[in-house]
Amino acid sequence: MAAPASPTLALLSLRCPHCHEGRLFTHSAFNLAHFTDMPERCEVCAVPLEPEPGFYWGAMFISYGFNVATVLTIGALLYFVGGDPDVWVYVLTVAGAALALAPAALRYSRALMLYWFGGARYRFNPRRLARA
């Protein structure tokens, strides 16, 4: 697969913020035993994917924002489109959606954390790849 041209496309495809080619996660999101596993360094450019110990703790706040958006969106859809059903329908639907979207929320919150607060100067250097 060719490297995405823009940082936004690289973020959406969960690629390295430096070279836009290396994968941020080692396993599929559907592998529930290992969907959180990340390599120490990018497989292409060797940039560290965990800049410091405990770096991804801040991603919990981003993930919380994703979950709040999920609750508000599902709640609004149920209210306006579903005709304001019983409370148990809200609870089951929101809980099911939050559980189903948990792997995606975790992965994108970690990717956003790395892109926004990684602290490295992410510029593509083709000469560095030629030496590697």
Rank of each mutant, 00 (worst) to 15 (best):
1 M>E: 14
37 D>T: 14
74 I>S: 04
23 R>H: 11
92 L>P: 00
110 R>M: 12
32 L>K: 02
43 E>A: 14
115 Y>V: 10
131 R>Y: 05
101 L>V: 06
94 V>S: 01
25 F>A: 01
128 R>S: 15
88 W>V: 10
7 P>L: 08
35 F>P: 03
87 V>A: 12
46 A>K: 10
63 S>H: 06
87 V>N: 01
66 F>I: 07
17 P>D: 09
114 L>I: 12
108 Y>M: 10
18 H>L: 03
75 G>V: 03
3 A>N: 09
20 H>Q: 10
52 E>C: 07
17 P>R: 05
84 D>F: 02
52 E>T: 13
12 L>V: 13
106 L>I: 11
45 C>Y: 01
13 S>K: 15
6 S>H: 12
12 L>R: 13
113 M>T: 05
90 Y>E: 00
57 W>L: 15
125 N>W: 07
118 G>T: 07
55 F>Y: 08
70 T>W: 01
61 F>E: 00
132 A>P: 00
98 A>F: 01
59 A>D: 04
100 A>H: 00
1 M>Y: 11
44 V>M: 02
11 L>M: 14
6 S>P: 05
113 M>S: 06
2 A>P: 15
33 A>H: 04
51 P>E: 04
104 A>G: 03
16 C>D: 03
48 P>V: 10
124 F>D: 09
30 F>R: 12
4 P>F: 05
75 G>E: 02
79 Y>T: 14
50 E>K: 08
58 G>P: 04
111 A>T: 13
53 P>Q: 10
92 L>Q: 08
98 A>N: 07
43 E>N: 10
17 P>I: 07
16 C>E: 04
117 F>G: 02
6 S>T: 15
102 A>M: 11
117 F>W: 14
132 A>N: 13
124 F>V: 11
53 P>T: 09
129 L>V: 05
74 I>L: 12
64 Y>M: 12
90 Y>K: 00
36 T>E: 09
113 M>N: 03
61 F>C: 10
71 V>S: 09
109 S>T: 05
41 R>Y: 11
50 E>C: 11
71 V>C: 12
48 P>E: 08
38 M>C: 05
102 A>D: 10
55 F>M: 11
127 R>Y: 13
16 C>Y: 00
22 G>R: 01
79 Y>I: 00
